[in-house]
C-alpha cells in the first residue's frame, strides 16, 4: 500500500461516511419517525418534538404485528428445515449415485430455476383451492419444500468431498443413508448453514404468494401484515406504521449480522462456480 497522509485519510473517511449515510439514511429516518407522535409528523415537524416509545406500544397492542411475526417464524422455520433436507438428499443423488438419465434430470431441475414462480401463481392458486389448503400454514410451505437453487448449490459443495471418503464408506459397507447422514452432511456443514440462511430469508421475504393465499391474521405472515396495516390506515398513522416496520426489520437484521460470515462464503461459492 502506498503511504497515506492525513488529508487523504480525511477524504477517505468522508467518502465512506457518505456511503454509509446513503445506506443508513432510510433506517435512521424510519427509527426516528417511529419515536414521534403521528400528529407531529403530519405537521411536518420532524425535529424538536417529544420522543417516546408510544408508537411501539400502539403497534403491539392495536395491531396483530406479533402474530404476524410468529406466523413468519413458523413458515420460515418449516421451509428452512424442509429445504435443507430435501435439497441435500437431491444433491446427494446427483453426486454419489449413478442412475440412468442422471445428467438429463439434473438439467431438468436446473431448468426450473428459469421458470419464475410469479408466472405460475394462477394454477398454483387453483391447486391450493382444490386441496382446500387456502389460508393455512401448509400452503405457505408446500410449494417451497425444495428448491432447484439449493440442489444446485449443494451439488457443488458435495463435489468437493474427496472420492476416497466414498470408497472408504463403500468398503465399510455404509448404506447410502448412513454415508449421507454421517459423512456428507457434517462435511458440507458450512454450505448447509448457508442454504439454511437463504431459505429462511427467502421465506421471510415472501410477499405475493402469501398475499394471495392468506385471508386472516391467524396465518398472514409479516410482509403481508405490514401491507394490511398500511391499507387499514385512512389517516396515514405514520408513527405506528414506522414502528411496525422497525419491529419487523429487527429480527432479520440480527440474523444477518450474526450470520454475515456464512452469507459471504455461500454467496462467493455460488458466484464463482456458476
Amino acid at each position: 500500500m502506498m503511504q497515506i497522509n492525513n488529508r487523504h485519510l480525511i477524504w477517505r473517511y468522508l467518502g465512506l461516511g457518505l456511503l454509509a449515510l446513503l445506506i443508513l439514511g432510510p433506517f435512521i429516518l424510519g427509527v426516528w419517525t417511529s419515536l414521534l407522535p403521528t400528529a407531529e409528523i403530519a405537521k411536518g415537524a420532524l425535529i424538536g418534538g417529544p420522543v417516546s416509545l408510544a408508537n411501539y406500544g400502539a403497534a403491539v397492542h392495536q395491531t396483530a404485528i406479533l402474530r404476524y411475526l410468529l406466523n413468519s417464524l413458523v413458515i420460515a422455520t418449516l421451509t428452512t428445515i424442509a429445504q435443507v433436507l430435501l435439497c441435500s438428499l437431491g444433491a446427494y443423488a446427483f453426486v454419489f449415485l449413478t442412475f440412468k438419465g442422471r445428467e438429463a434430470l439434473f438439467y431438468v431441475i436446473l431448468a426450473t430455476m428459469m421458470l419464475p414462480f410469479e408466472a405460475e401463481v394462477i394454477p398454483n392458486f387453483a391447486t391450493a383451492r382444490q386441496f382446500n389448503l387456502l389460508n393455512h400454514y401448509a400452503i405457505l410451505v408446500l410449494p417451497f419444500l425444495t428448491s432447484a437453487f439449493g440442489i444446485f448449490m449443494l451439488r457443488q459443495a458435495f463435489r468437493q468431498i474427496p472420492g476416497e471418503l466414498k470408497e472408504a464408506a463403500d468398503i465399510e459397507g455404509l448404506n447410502p443413508w448412513q454415508f449421507y447422514w454421517h459423512v456428507v452432511l457434517p462435511y458440507a456443514r458450512i454450505s448447509l448453514v448457508t442454504l439454511a440462511a437463504y431459505s429462511f430469508l427467502g421465506s421471510w421475504n415472501q410477499y405475493l404468494w402469501p398475499m394471495l393465499t392468506t385471508f386472516s391474521d391467524r396465518f398472514r405472515p409479516v410482509q403481508d401484515g405490514l401491507r394490511q396495516l398500511q391499507s387499514q390506515e385512512t389517516f396515514n398513522n405514520w408513527g405506528m406504521i414506522q414502528a411496525s416496520a422497525v419491529i419487523v426489520v429487527l429480527p432479520t437484521l440480527i440474523v444477518l449480522f450474526v450470520g454475515q460470515h456464512f452469507f459471504k462464503t455461500g454467496l462467493n461459492q455460488g458466484a464463482t462456480k456458476s
Partner: peptide
C-alpha cells in the same frame, strides 16, 4: 466456534420471538 455461536444466537432469537408471539396469541 463461529458456528456454535451462530446457533446460540439463532436459538436465542427463536425462543425470544416464540415467547412474544405465543404470549400475544393467547392474549388475543
Amino acid at each position: 466456534k463461529r458456528i456454535r455461536k451462530l446457533w446460540g444466537w439463532l436459538a436465542l432469537l427463536v425462543v425470544g420471538v416464540t415467547l412474544i408471539g405465543t404470549g400475544w396469541a393467547t392474549h388475543q
